[in-house]
Design a protein around this nucleic acid. Sequence first.
DNA 1: ACAGCATATGCTTCCTCTGGAATACAGGAC
DNA 2: GTCCTGTATTCCAGAGGAAGCATATGCTGT
Lengths: 121, 121
Amino acid sequence: MSAPSLIEIYQCLCDETRLRLLNVLTRGPLCVCHFQEVLGEPQVKISKHLGYLRDKGLVAVTRHQNWMIYALPAKRSPELDSNLRCLQDCVQTHRIFQADLRRLEALRPKIGWLDEVCDCS
Amino acid sequence: MSAPSLIEIYQCLCDETRLRLLNVLTRGPLCVCHFQEVLGEPQVKISKHLGYLRDKGLVAVTRHQNWMIYALPAKRSPELDSNLRCLQDCVQTHRIFQADLRRLEALRPKIGWLDEVCDCS
DNA sequence: ACAGCATATGCTTCCTCTGGAATACAGGAC
DNA sequence: GTCCTGTATTCCAGAGGAAGCATATGCTGT
């Protein structure tokens, strides 16, 4: 899994669904079905966009039984880190992203165990 | 010219030629023929990418006689500013962008007058 | 073995983007 | 007016991305 180039990072960032996924991921690892709940989007859409992010090296994935757990990679290039911080900044004022985070917090009780299972948080 | 959305900003940033244009523009306004010299790319390519950036509201343009002078817009959304700063950061270690800036500085003597002509720097 | 759940992968359709060649347009000099 | 220079636009072909449907895979439990 080689580090994404700057262009690849921006390619990942130019789709709203992927921005939402990355925004949620800054709070910790998550699996596909929970992304579905948080974003309210169909499974195939979530899965494909996560696959896109995975292929470009913006997220890492581990399997735990039936669940694929996605997380930001443990080691990130300075470029990726800069852009994730920038995204965090920009997203503060956008309702859609904040609503995602609220739904994520509502799920918290159910997904606490993920942090222990996943080694890439 | 409405402010670009976050997605539109990222759409602009996911092409290398446009990254180079924006990087050069952070140093001041410039016209198409000078972009050609600095980037070493054909006129149609430069013009089209500048047009793309203009349509999305990432650059402003004024005509001065035969020359179209492009510049970063005087008023920028916080999102655009954040991303331009982030870009500046990321670009420090990339030869191609630094080479552009070097060629730009070499052109400086010829283009000093641009700053006075352009009201949008 | 089978059933059921979680996820991924074709496949299709539509749309956008990119680059290049040729051409059009606008302004200045004469 | 004509010519020249600087820039934009049109047209084309190729590539890639997005969404949805259907299907496949992989794991678990029985």
